[in-house]
Amino acid sequence: MSQVTAVKTTTLDVPLESLLIKVLERRQANDRLVQICCAVIDNQYELLYTFSDDEAWEVTNLKVTCSLTAKIPSITRIYPYATFYENEMAELFGVPVEMIQNDYHGKFYRIGAKDPFLKASEKAQKEKEEEAAKEAETKKTQETPEEAADAPKEPADKAQGGAK
């Protein structure tokens, strides 16, 4: 009878800001990237990065939960072949992955509809979040002239170099 290998599977919840570090750890452990899966659970993206240590039969899942507008860093600088997985989730789910090497810009599967795997309610939620983010950005830009108006003015003689 051939040896039956029990596979040890570990799933780690990883904050978005630690994703690249955790992926680098997997690369340094010589793990193979098995797949990247995107799902929308409770109006949030749930990204599952699966790595396999084929010699030790260990699987590590890195689970990242983030909002529908969070910017996801690409891992293609660490695992170049992740480009296909990232392009797929960007096109099907509208996941905003930044700096993908070999970015197909939404033409990987050549689908006419935008974000076809997002439900109508999820698309509405995403648009709402994007609007809110835009408003927050606009507000931030608009504050600057007001701040300049509120700032204390210098005396006129001093401004002219103290000339009398």
């Binding site: 797949q35 899966c37 929308v40 659970i41």
Partner: peptide, 28 residues
């Protein structure tokens, strides 16, 4: 190697069914 991921939420419709097929991995 082919991967089949399912995520159910207690209803009769799954939240997600994802298949990663071997040819997808072999393109690179």
């Amino acid at each position: 190697e082919a991967i089949y991921y399912v995520h159910g939420d207690g209803t009769r419709f799954l939240k997600r069914f994802r298949v990663r097929t071997p040819t997808f991995a072999n393109i690179a």
